[in-house]
Amino acid sequence: MDVLSDVVAVTRTGRPRSAHVRWHAPWGQEFASVPGSAGFQVILRGSCWLLSPDAEPFQLGTGDVVFLPHGRGHTLADSPGTPVTAAACGPDEVPLSAIHVAGTHVSDTVDRSGDGGPVTVVLCGAYQLDPSRTHPLLLTLPDLIHLPARAGRHPELSAAVSLLAAELENPRLGTDAAVPVLLDALLLYILRIWFNEQSSQVNPTGWAAALNDPPVTAALHAIHRDPASPWTVAKLAAESGLSRAPFARRFALLIGQPPIGYLTWWRMTAAARLLRTSDAPLRSLAAQVGYTSEFAFASAFKRTHGMAPGAYRRKN
Rank of each mutant, 00 (worst) to 15 (best):
L183Y: 01
A208N: 09
V202G: 05
L191Q: 01
L187T: 00
V181S: 00
L186E: 03
S200W: 09
Q198T: 06
A209F: 07
A210M: 05
L183A: 07
I190W: 02
P180S: 02
W194E: 11
P214V: 10
R192E: 05
V181A: 04
P180A: 03
R192M: 10
L183Q: 13
V216R: 10
Q201L: 12
V202Y: 08
L188T: 02
L187D: 02
P215A: 12
V202E: 15
A209M: 03
N203K: 07
A209Y: 10
A209P: 12
L211C: 08
N212V: 01
S200H: 12
A185P: 04
W194F: 15
V181Q: 00
D213K: 05
T205R: 12
I193N: 07
T205D: 12
S200G: 14
Q201G: 14
W194V: 04
F195G: 03
P214M: 08
T205E: 13
A208M: 02
I193T: 13
D213G: 06
T217I: 06
W207F: 15
L211F: 14
L188R: 10
F195A: 03
A209H: 11
N203M: 05
D213F: 08
A210C: 08
L186V: 02
L191M: 10
E197F: 02
F195V: 02
I190S: 06
L191N: 02
N212S: 15
D184N: 05
A185R: 04
T217A: 11
V216C: 13
F195W: 13
R192T: 11
W194Q: 07
E197H: 04
V216M: 11
P215Q: 12
V181I: 09
L191S: 04
V181E: 01
A185Q: 06
P204L: 02
G206T: 00
L182M: 04
N196I: 06
A185C: 11
Q198K: 12
L187V: 00
N196L: 14
W207H: 08
V216I: 12
N212W: 09
A185W: 07
P214W: 04
T217D: 07
D184C: 11
L191C: 11
L182P: 05
D184E: 14
N203T: 13
Y189F: 13
Y189P: 00
